[in-house]
Design a protein around this nucleic acid. Structure first.
Length: 406
RNA sequence: GGGGAGGUACCAAAGUGGUUAAAUGGAGCGGACUGUAGAUCCGUUGGCUGAACGCCUUCGAAGGUUCGAAUCCUUCCCUCCCCA
């Protein structure tokens, strides 16, 4: 493979490479010396639930693996104690060694759906950060200045808005930079929000007499709401462990304008084909829904296989195009003593489903017409429902529940 | 160490003794429309009670004044700014 080709694989979907010339030099050197590049990316030890947003970076790592380079999957168990300064995060609880190990296992299980396990090195930064003496920390701190820290957009904003900035938060980028020193990283990957930290890494490496790493930033994938970046806490995520049908459905709910971005960042569809799709969309030669269905298929295929993708699609069409029930529904088990003469108060039933947080919410939902029984809208919150086995209750826009009586 | 400004619901932000479960905006949820998209419109957003404008909890925390407090007083905690 010539370098051009390698470069184009690396460049797909990236936001910024600092710098491309240096990257080319590194690749050339690596080839000449037959020494693979060391590629690093850090992950939060607290949230080992991988979603499509994470896969942007993971897939990029995989591409590096396939190009013969060395991957360091860094679990930030030490830095995780601080939490990347975002203003929102309060001091996080310190994880025990056991918890960290458990999370790491969870990570592995999921991450190896994307990465090549044999070529992946999983490392923990507590390994070196936890061993630094106070004077070594001071030495690290002396390599940077407050003014330079305040260049960071997040810090600058908070400073301007008179919001608190903890001293320890200043340490976060330094620690991350030190990770690069410890690993002698050639390349560090990260989201665009990591740019500052990644750049600090370059400077710190220089201070420690290492060749500065190349930084490659990747876009932050928007979640299903189309606005915020995908994250579990915002509830706008598509997890790679989710059931095919759920995954498919969630992909279908992303805004149209994100389709191309998703194709590029989280599928294997070639850039050529993506471009074709784009043109055909613009010319109205393709219906947006059909394109999104393809997208959903491609994504489900990656994590569940071709067959599951097709089944998920059938399900989707059944429920949303033909307005039928899904094949599989969550079962709601009613015990005999929940019933009075075969009846149950509808509000109670909905509360039992666990799909609402309170009876008041259930009441509201009914009053607003968000509840259907066997396809019939119900708007009487006082209804005593005579339950029958197999009855289907639709609660809200997306939830179906099938009654089971025991 | 001195002086000043603040802490209200998911977020932002009004309210400064009763009519305040707390204006308004954003976000969320539901409905209509649709392609589970977007745009738009309407409704809704503490909980409990088979619902009544009845009760309980909520305006940083704890006490107090009052018939009545997010609003007044005391103490405490936290944040920011200016000066040193």
């Amino acid at each position: 493979m010539d370098i051009k080709e390698e470069l184009s694989i690396i460049k797909r979907g990236t936001e910024e490479i600092i710098s491309e010339e240096e990257l080319i030099k590194k690749i050339e050197k690596s080839r000449k010396e037959k020494k693979p590049l060391r590629v690093k990316q850090g992950f939060d030890p607290n949230a080992p639930d991988i979603h499509l947003g994470h896969t942007v970076g993971l897939r990029k790592m995989r591409q590096f693996q396939d190009l013969g380079h060395e991957i360091y999957f860094l679990i930030g168990d030490f830095t995780g104690r601080i939490g990347d300064p975002s203003g929102r995060s309060v001091a996080r609880k310190q994880l025990t060694e056991e918890e960290v190990n458990k999370n790491a296992e969870t990570y592995k299980k999921q991450v190896y759906k994307i990465l090549n396990p044999e070529k992946t090195k999983i490392v923990f930064n507590s390994n070196w950060l936890g061993k630094l003496s106070f004077s070594e920390v001071l030495k690290l701190c002396s390599k940077y200045t407050v003014a330079r820290m305040l260049e960071r957009d997040d810090f600058a904003t908070r400073y301007k808005e008179e919001k608190p900035i903890g001293i320890h938060e200043f340490l976060y980028p330094l620690m991350q930079g030190y990770d690069s020193v410890a690993l002698q990283a050639d390349i560090e990957l990260g989201g665009t929000d990591q740019k500052f930290n990644l750049l600090v890494g370059r400077n710190i490496q220089r201070e420690y007499n290492q060749e500065p790493q190349i930084i490659i930033t990747l876009p932050l994938l928007e979640g299903t709401d189309g606005i915020e970046k995908m994250s579990k806490s915002l509830g706008n995520y598509i997890g790679i462990n989710e059931l095919p049908q759920i995954m498919y459905g969630k992909v279908m709910s992303i805004p149209d304008r994100l389709m191309i971005r998703y194709f590029e960042l989280v599928t294997d569809v070639s850039l050529n084909e993506i471009n074709q799709i784009k043109i055909n969309l613009e010319n109205d030669n393709l219906h947006p829904q059909d394109v999104k269905k393809k997208l959903a298929r491609e994504i489900v295929k990656l994590y569940h296989g071709q067959n599951a993708a097709l089944i998920a699609e059938e399900e989707f069409e059944k429920v949303f195009n033909k307005k039928l029930y899904p094949e599989e529904m969550k079962e709601l088990v009613l015990k005999k003593d929940n019933l009075k003469e075969g009846k149950i108060w509808l509000i109670k039933l909905i509360a039992l489903s666990g799909l609402v947080n309170s009876k008041s919410e259930a009441r509201r939902l009914i009053e607003q017409g968000g509840v259907k029984i066997n396809g019939e809208k119900v708007d009487d919150p006082n209804l005593d429902l005579t339950v029958k086995k197999g009855m289907v209750i639709k609660i809200g826009k997306l939830n179906f529940v099938k009654l089971v009586i025991r």
